[in-house]
Each structure stands twice: as C-alpha cells, then as structure tokens.
Design a protein around this nucleic acid. Sequence first.
DNA 1: TTTCAGTTTAACAATACAGTTAAATCAAGT
DNA 2: ACTTGATTTAACTGTATTGTTAAACTGAAA
Lengths: 207, 207
Amino acid sequence: MVNKKDDNQTEKAILEAADKVFTQKGFAAARMEDIAQEAGINRALLHYYFRSKDKMFDLIFQQRVSIFFSGLGQIMHSEKPLIEKIQAIVEHEITILLAHPYLPIFVLQELNQNPHRMLAIAENAGAHPSLLLKKFSVEVRAEIKAGTIRETDPAQLFMSIMGMAIYPFVARPVVKIILEKDDVGFESVMLQRKKEITDFIIHALKP
Amino acid sequence: MVNKKDDNQTEKAILEAADKVFTQKGFAAARMEDIAQEAGINRALLHYYFRSKDKMFDLIFQQRVSIFFSGLGQIMHSEKPLIEKIQAIVEHEITILLAHPYLPIFVLQELNQNPHRMLAIAENAGAHPSLLLKKFSVEVRAEIKAGTIRETDPAQLFMSIMGMAIYPFVARPVVKIILEKDDVGFESVMLQRKKEITDFIIHALKP
DNA sequence: TTTCAGTTTAACAATACAGTTAAATCAAGT
DNA sequence: ACTTGATTTAACTGTATTGTTAAACTGAAA
C-alpha cells in the first residue's frame, strides 16, 4: 500500500521543507518549486498532499507560532517563585530559539503583515494572551510590596526579559557581524547568554 | 519646466510611498501598483523615475538602514561617560523607532534573507560595525576595573541594551495584544520605556 | 504660440508562478 | 500476474506582475 518511503515519510519531508523555505523566505517570497526541491520531490506531488500554498502556509504558521509560544504559558502559570520563573522563561526561550533560529523573525514578520492572525491563534490557544501578563503582574507587585525587589512596572519588565532573550536571534546577521562570530560562535554566545540575562535581571531587580 | 507639482515633489512622493509599501510588506510582497497608488500616480511614471523595482528597493533599503543605524555610531564614538552613553543610545533608538515603527522588522527581515547586504552597507558606511563594539568594550572593562560597575561581558550588555529598546517594536502586534493597548497606548508605553530601560540597566550594573 | 518636461492612458510583451491534469512509471502487497 | 497507490513527467491554463512603449495630454516657461 506504500511506495519507496514508509507511510507518511513524504508528508513529513514536505512539511519540513515547507517549514524551512517559509521560515527563511516568508510567505510572499517562498516558491512552491523551492519547497518541492527542498523536499526532493516535484510540484505536482506537493499539491497532491496539500492542496494550495495558502493551506500549507497556514499549517506551518500555526505550528511555528505554537512552538514560539509553547511552554511559555505553562511556565508563566506555574507556581515557581518569581525569580525562578524568570530564569525558566529565559532558559526556555533561548533553548527553543537555538533549535529554531529563524523562528522569531518569521513569525513576527508575518504577524506584522497580518495582525489579525494573532487573535485567531490566541483564541485557538484557549486563553487570551493578556492573561499571561496579568498573573505575572500580580506576582511582581507582590514581591515589590514584600520588599524583595525594586519598584518596577511589570509590563516593562516582561518586555525587557523577552527582548533580551529573543532580540539577538531576530538581529542574528547584525549580531554575527558586530561580534565577528560564525554560526558556531553565535550559538556559544547564546548559550552563555542564558546565565548572563538571568544575572542581569536579578541585579536589576535588587531593591 | 515643471508641471502641476514643483520640481522633485513627485520623486519625493514616490520615495515616501515606496518606503511605506516596502516597509510594511517587504520586498517580495510589495507591488509596484501598490506604490503607484500610494503615491497617487501610475505605474508608468514609477518606471519613468526609477527604472526598476530592484533599483527602487535598493535606494529605500539603504536609506532605511542608515536611519536605523544613524546616530548610533556618533553616540558610540562620543566621549560621554559610559552610563550617559547607554542612556543616550536607549533614548536615541526609541525616539527613532517611535517615528519609524515598522523600520526594524523590515530591515531585519530583509537582512536575514540577504545577509551579504549587511556587509555591503557596512563598508559603504565607512567603518566596520565591529568597531562600534570594540570601543564600547574598552570602556566597559575600564569601568569594571575602576569598580564603578559590576563584572559584565560587554557584548552581552550591548545585546541587552539593543534588545530591550528595539524588540518591543519588532514584536509590536504581540505587545499590543498582551498589553491590551492601541497604537496610542503603545506609543505612550514606549515613551515611558526610555527611562525604565535606563534605570533597569543602571541597577543591573551596580557593583 | 511654441516648446518641453511631466504625466496619463492604454495598450503590449515577457516572465513567473500557482494550480491542474493525463499519462506513464514504479514499488509493493495480494 | 494483477492491483493499487505513490510518484514522476510534461504539458497546459490562468493569472499576476514587472517592465516597455507610443500616443496623447497638460501646464508652465520661453
């Protein structure tokens, strides 16, 4: 019932190829031919598996977004103390982005072009994204009241955490040039960065 | 010698339109027709002024990149004390990005697709970008030796500064949803953010 | 009035691309 | 051997888009 490759091997190859091409080029610049070549097959078979470019893109995009935000919700809603939670967020984000370096620029670029997609996905995910920040804010304010951290706006703090962790990947080519690193060097800098960011935040929050 | 509009009025209108369309959609998704409509003219006149889409894009892109990095070099090479310099960088970046909110995602997305462009532009700009970091590093290490700031890796610090300032604009649609703000609200949050980031960094660097 | 650059209109050519299809091939299971 | 589904080949349709062109129009300047 199956040919050369076992069962859904081809489908998987296509999805991987589509992911790679869409992620690197974005929807508009991606060509079905590119995806086919990357998957080692031809255009006809692409349409045999996935009807249209749009359908393929929607699939990939949803997957990518969920990877991008995966785990984050879980960590944010966990019952860890604030500092540990921040540390977990930073480590989680950097780990994910080391495995998917082109993920954030892709997702953010496409979201910028179709902001409505964000809402659709958010609803799909169940909880409204602003709830993430709500719980975080309560915890930050509690620590401030308890005197364990300095007076800070929780939203601003949240943006700082995300910015420090994610931005280097978004600006990857610039960073590589300024730091004079190749891909390997970049990765090792990002590994160090996990601890660096956490330390930075801990000191910044000291009363 | 001139028609309805004075001299280079049209050229200016075209450049502004091209900037808007390219910046919002990226090169691949941008249509010459879009640009023409945005400029209030027709496609033919577009080619009358600028031969091709590529030529127009190159112009716009160079302009945008130079805006993105403009002033930064000047500040970095100034003789301000370190903390003031950091403060100046943050204020400068956020001020620029408030005026050009879609700038970073555009530049970074196109750079990710054509990293070689970065080098071309860098050379064009005269100085190698890594020199920016070199001077900064020396200054940071001097302050560390003098005991005025905590032991920190200069490159990591630099990425943190840039990330905190720039990332919210890159992730603008996400930020707006999580913070439940409209465009006006977003801008006011970013205005506050100037001081927030500087304070954050100052505290993080305290020995 | 004539001239001339800027501008519009309305085609056109050339290409690129998405999507479809029919027929042939191939590899495995029956 | 026959069947069946996966895959390729190769063509095709239709449309979007870039780029070009010729002709007409316009309004200011000479």
